[in-house]
Design a protein around this nucleic acid. Structure first.
Lengths: 197, 197
DNA sequence: CAGATGACAAAAATTGAAATCTGTCAGCTG
DNA sequence: CAGCTGACAGATTTCAATTTTTGTCATCTG
C-alpha cells in the first residue's frame, strides 16, 4: 500500500509510459494518465507544469537508460580502442534491440524525441562526453594520434560519423541485409583515422 | 512558337517545378500543372502514368543536377585526396546553398525526396559510385591504404560518415555556428582513415 | 492546511458533409 | 488518326460544427 499511496513524479512517469505504450503518442492525454493513476488530472498538473514537460521527462528517462548502460563500457578497464569499438557496437546493438523488440513503442519514442530538441541535445552531449573520455585516454596513452585535435572535437566527429547506426531517423535501414558489414566498414575507417601510425 | 508548341515530358516537368514552387508539395495538383500549360489534365496523364510518377521524375531531375555538378570534380586531374576533399566540400556547399537560397523550395523537395525512396537510392548509388572511382584511383596510386577493403565499400563508408553534412534530414543544423569546424574535423578524421601511413 | 478535486475558458482534435482531385476513357478535332 | 478533351466514378481533401483536451483555480477534505 505504502508504495502506491503517495502521488510522486516517479509514479506519474511510470503511468505515462504505460499510457503512451497503450495509446500511442497522438492519443495519450493527461486525463488518461490521471485515470490510470486513479486521480484527477489536476493532481498531475501539480507535479508537471505542462503536458510538454511531462512528455519531456518521459523522453529523458528513456534516453538516460541508454546513456547509463553505455557509461559502464566507457569507464571500463580495456584499452581505449577496444572500449571505443565495444561502445559503438553496443550503442548500435541497443538501438536495434529497441526497434526490433517493439517497433510501435520505438515509433512512439521517435515522435517524442522529435518534439524536444533540448532533451536530445542534452543526451548527445552526454554520449559525446563519454566518447571524449575514452578518446582522451587513448591520446594520453599514445594509442590515438590525430595532431592538434581536442578529444571533444574528435568525439563529436566520431559521433557524427556513426550517425547512420544510432540516429533513429535511419532506423528503417537497420534491418537491411548488409547492415552489419556496413557498420564494421565504417567503424574500421574511423578507428584507422584515430589510431597512431 | 515551335519551342512551346508540342507538349513534351520536358515541358511538363518544367511546369510541375513551377507549380511546386508556387503552391508547395501539399497543394500542387495535376490540374494546376495542366492549367499552367494551357491543356487539359488528361493530356498530362498521356505522358506520366500517375501523379506519383510525375513527382518522382521532378525529384530525379533535381537530384541529378547535384550529381552532374559533382561528377566534374570526381573526374578531375588533381590527386585523389585533394579531389575527395573538394568533392565532399562541394557536396556540402551545394546543399547549404540550396537551403539558404530558398528554404521553402528546399522544404518542398525534402517532402518529395521523402516520398520516393527508389529515386533516392538511385541517387545515393550514383554519388557513392563517384566516390568509389576517386577512392579506387587513390588505392591504385598507393595514396590510400586500408587493407582488404573494396573501393565500393569504402565509398559507402565515407558517404555514410559524412551524412550529417549532406542528408537533408540534418538541414536545420547547417546554419549553426560551429558547423564548418565540425565538417572539417570529420573530413580530417575520415581522410586520415583512408590515407596510407 | 497540504494536497486533491472538478468546473471552467481557451485551445486543439475529431467528425462528417461538401468540394476537389485523380485517373480513365469514349468521343472530338485539326 | 494522333493527340487532346472533358465527363465521370471513386478517392482524397477541405472546412465548419462539435467534441475533447489543456491548464487554472476557487473550493473541498482528511
Amino acid at each position: 500500500m505504502a508504495t502506491t499511496d503517495a502521488l510522486t513524479p516517479e509514479r506519474i512517469l511510470e503511468a505515462t509510459e504505460e499510457v503512451l505504450r497503450r495509446h500511442g503518442p497522438a492519443k495519450a492525454t493527461v486525463v488518461d494518465v490521471a485515470r490510470a493513476l486513479g486521480v484527477s488530472h489536476g493532481s498531475v498538473y501539480r507535479h508537471f507544469r505542462t503536458k510538454t514537460a511531462l512528455r519531456e521527462a518521459v523522453t529523458q528517462r528513456w534516453l538516460d537508460r541508454t546513456s547509463t548502460s553505455l557509461s559502464g563500457i566507457a569507464a571500463g578497464a580495456e584499452p581505449p580502442e577496444t572500449r571505443l569499438r565495444r561502445w559503438l557496437a553496443e550503442l548500435f546493438a541497443a538501438k536495434r534491440r529497441k526497434v526490433g523488440g517493439d517497433p510501435e513503442l520505438f515509433a512512439t519514442y521517435m515522435v517524442l524525441v522529435g518534439e524536444s530538441s533540448a532533451v536530445v541535445n542534452r543526451h548527445r552531449a552526454d554520449l559525446t562526453g563519454q566518447l571524449a573520455r575514452i578518446i582522451h585516454e587513448g591520446l594520453e596513452r599514445g594509442d590515438f594520434a590525430p595532431a592538434g585535435a581536442a578529444p571533444e572535437v574528435l568525439a563529436r566527429a566520431v559521433f557524427d560519423a556513426t550517425g547512420r547506426f544510432h540516429d533513429p531517423a535511419y532506423a528503417r535501414e537497420w534491418a537491411g541485409p548488409g547492415i552489419e558489414a556496413e557498420f564494421t566498414a565504417l567503424v574500421d575507417l574511423v578507428l584507422r583515422g584515430l589510431r597512431a601510425p
